[in-house]
Write a protein that binds this DNA or RNA. Structure first.
Length: 294
DNA sequence: CCGCGGGCCTGAGAGC
DNA sequence: TGCTCTCAGGCCCGCG
């Protein structure tokens, strides 16, 4: 479920508990998630110090002191739970779990501080892998990723060059991690609405014949960057099972203009439209048929 | 190359 | 109460 803002929120919540800590042991409670854990995964982590917690797109990156990086993807339902020694000492104290079922605790990092970092994932669409730091960019899950919508990597020029001439619907293109990395169904819908662009328009139409980004292109990139920044500031969006690492709820879901708002009035000033739902590439698109005409 | 459908999993909610 | 059906924030594969 988590998109970039949720993963970034988890990263910043985990960092103070993990950076500088020694992993005493890594406990695997099953041999696989979406994919099998790589050979010697748990053994390779024990005794290592966590140097930094990073992120690329929707992938969490745990950098270790031996030059390896642990890659962790939350899939649709992955969550991290911070469990301190004090919390474990009180039987029946499950408040920190926020309702997560213990039978889905698949990975537990035991830290020298006494804190346990639990990875809980009912649907098991997540995965973990490890890679040498210097080979991270060549990893199959990273190699083809497009620019981050945060920072300076994404500009209307870079976006235009990636979609020029393509007839793919805008919605499908924005979900393609090779074009922009980290967007998912929620923020794609929200960004298209903010930019007043139709989810069905061929994405290449945003680019001029000379390959230069048109005005809609610049506006779309601005709106993508804005919605992602606002969602990170709000701690992400909590729908069913997403929580911040400390169990807190994100609150960007209260600011959805279109996502899961079918039948609601469009919130664009002077628009009398009603939010509709369509299916594209097997996934729900929420949009305003009245004002998203571009 | 492209878009679509199906599949991977479990759980929540709606409808009967 | 309990059954069945649909749907879910991601992503990969194979098909036409």
């Amino acid at each position: 479920m988590p998109e970039l803002p949720e993963v970034e929120t988890v990263r910043s919540g985990l960092a103070p508990h993990m950076e500088g800590q020694i992993i005493t042991t890594c406990q695997l409670n099953r041999p696989d998630l979406r994919f099998p854990f790589p050979a010697q995964f748990a053994e390779a982590l024990s005794g290592r110090t966590i140097v930094a917690m990073g992120r690329r797109a929707k992938i969490l990156l745990m950098a270790l002191d031996d030059g390896w990086v642990v890659m962790m993807h939350l899939g649709m339902s992955g969550r991290f739970i911070i469990e301190t020694a004090d919390q474990r000492a009180v039987p029946g104290d499950f408040a920190h779990r926020s309702g997560a079922n213990p039978k889905h605790d698949h990975v537990i990092f035991h830290l020298a501080s006494g804190t346990h970092i639990l990875y809980n994932d009912p649907r098991r669409f997540g995965y973990m892998d490890r890679v040498r730091q210097e080979e991270l960019e060549e990893h199959p899950s990273v190699r083809s990723l497009g620019p981050e919508p945060t920072g300076n990597a994404l500009s209307e020029q870079t976006f235009a060059s990636r979609v020029k001439g393509r007839k793919t619907p805008l919605k499908t293109a924005l979900l393609d991690q090779r074009i922009i990395a980290g967007l998912g169904n929620i923020y794609v819908c929200e960004a298209m609405w903010r930019a007043r662009l139709s989810p069905f328009m061929p994405v290449g139409a945003l680019v001029g014949a000379d390959g230069a980004p048109g005005p809609h292109c610049a506006e779309l990139v601005r709106m993508i960057r804005a919605v992602i920044a606002e969602a990170i500031a709000a701690g992400g969006s909590s729908l069913k099972d997403y929580r911040q690492a400390d169990g807190a709820l994100g609150y960007f879901q209260h600011r959805f203009a279109v996502y899961d708002q079918e039948g609601a009035p469009c919130r664009h000033e002077a628009c009398t439209g009603t939010i509709a739902r369509a299916v594209q590439a097997g996934r729900s698109t929420f949009y305003c048929p009245t004002c998203q005409m571009g």
